[in-house]
Amino acid sequence: MLSRTADHLYWMARCTERAENLARLLDVTHQMSLVPQSVAAENQNWGAILALNSLEASFNDAYDEVNAENVLRFMVSDAKNPSSIYSCLRAARENAHAVRGTLTAETWESCNATWIELREQKFEQILSAGVGEFFDWVKLRSAVTRGVTFGTMLQDEALHFIRLGGLLERGDNTARILDVKYHVLRSNGDEGDEGTTDFYQWGALLRSLSAFEVYRKVYRDVITPARVAELLMLRMDLPRSLHACANGIVRVLDLISNSHSDETKRRAGMLHAHLHYARIEDVLAHGLHEYLTDFMDRIYDLGEGINRDFLIPAA
C-alpha cells in the first residue's frame, strides 16, 4: 500500500478517535460541574482541559475568561482551534476524502455524513439543546463510523493502519482524561473516599469512558480511586484501557511489519510488558501522574517510529 494512503488512513482514525475522546472529556467535565461547587473550582476544571492540551496561549488570545461557555465554544466549534471537535472531524473527513477510493462506500459516507451534519450545528444551538446531547451525537457518529469500518472493510493493510491510528490515539486520550480528572478528584476528596460527591464524580469519570457498568461487574464493590485507576490502566479486557491499547498496537505492528520496523515493534512490546506486569499499588506509590506522563511519551515515540517506518519513509 502507498505510504501516503496509509498515512491518511492512520490520521483519519486518529482524528475521529480524538474527536470522540474530546467529547468524552468535555462531557465528564460538564457532568462534574453539575454537582454543587464554587465557581472558582468549576472554572479551574475547565482550565485544566486547556492545560492538558497545551492550549492556554491560543485560548487566551481569543477569549478573555476561562469559564464553561468559553472553553466549550473553543473546544467544540472553534474552527481556528486545531484541537476542537470541529477541526478534528474536518481533518478526519479530509483524510478520508484523500483516500476515499481505499475505503468502502459505507465508511466514506459515514465519515462524510458526520461532517455534513456537524457543519449544520451552530454552537448556540448546541448550547441551548444541551451539550450532553451533542457529545452523545459525537460518540454515536464515531461508533457508527467505527462499526461500518470494521463491518465492511477487507481485513488488509488498510484496516490495520486504521486500527493502529485508533489505538494510539485512544491510549493517549484515556491517559490524558485519567491524568487530569484523577488529580482534581483526589485533591477535592477528603480522607474518606466514599462521600456522596465523590461517588458522583468518580461515576462521571467512569461513565465518560463507558466503564461504569464494567466497574460494577468487575469489582462488585464501592468505587475507589485505586480501582478506577487499575481498571482504566491495567485491565486488558476493557477496550479503552491503556493495557488493551498497547496490546492491540503490538498485534497490529506484527501484521504490518516490514524490514525496518523491528525497533518500533520492540518498543511497543516493552510498553505492553510494562503494563501487563504492572501492579496498581506500585504505580500509585511511584506516582500516577509520572506513570501516565511516561506512558504518553512512549505513545508519542511509537507514533514517531510508525511515521519513520511506514508513513513517511525516505526514498
Binding site: M1, L2, R4, A6, V99, G101, E157, F161, N258, S259
Partner: peptide, 24 residues
C-alpha cells in the same frame, strides 16, 4: 489500481517507483 500523487512516486535509474509501506 493505486491512486498516486506526484510525491508518492520517485525516479531512480530511469525507473519509476512508488513509495509503499513495504518499500519501493
Amino acid at each position: 489500481v493505486e491512486l498516486v500523487e506526484g510525491r508518492d512516486l520517485f525516479v531512480k535509474d530511469d525507473t519509476v517507483y512508488m513509495r509503499t509501506t513495504q518499500g519501493p
